[in-house]
């Protein structure tokens, strides 16, 4: 379980960083989205990972606090998702504005001379 999540985060981060360094704005925004997925997964995993556990109560057992996974990272990740979503949407608008104003989708607003 840990290994799968760790590899998943690693792959998302790697692809995100690679895309972030590309010259096209669309690649940059997809890279940012992948990076934010990686960050969100990372936050989520700090609460501890358990597979096959019941959501709140085990059948036939008294509920104890020790059986819960830590709910705080889940609250954090929710906040992070909302904020990340909003700022990415904002960036998308700026990308479109830049495309319209400069006539190119290069991140520097002009193509390299060949």
């Amino acid at each position: 379980m840990e290994l799968v999540v760790a590899i998943g985060i690693g792959v998302l981060t790697g692809s995100g960083v690679w895309l972030l360094l590309r010259p096209r704005t669309f690649q940059v925004i997809i890279g940012l989205a992948l990076l934010s997925y990686a960050a969100n997964l990372f936050i989520f995993s700090t609460g501890g990972l358990r597979s096959g556990a019941a959501a709140i109560l085990e059948p036939g057992e008294a509920g104890t606090l020790a059986r819960y996974t830590d709910p705080l990272p889940q609250a954090l990740v929710l906040t992070a998702i909302v904020i990340g979503f909003a700022t990415t949407a904002l960036l998308l608008v700026v990308l479109l504005a830049a495309r319209g104003l400069t006539g190119t989708d290069h991140v520097d607003g002009r193509e390299r001379e060949r």
Binding site: L20, T25, V28, L32, L35, S36, A39, N40, F42, I43, T46, L72, P73, L76, A80, I83, G84, T87, T88, L90, L91, V94, L95, A97, A98, L101, T102, V107, D108, G109
Partner: peptide
């Protein structure tokens, strides 16, 4: 718009680092 694009991207990445740091600390 050109400068703002760079500014926003850099700060978004910094925010992600902030999140990673905070959750590692937690």
């Amino acid at each position: 718009v050109r400068a703002g694009l760079h500014y926003i991207v850099i700060n978004l990445v910094a925010s992600l680092l902030f999140l990673v740091g905070v959750s590692a600390v937690y």
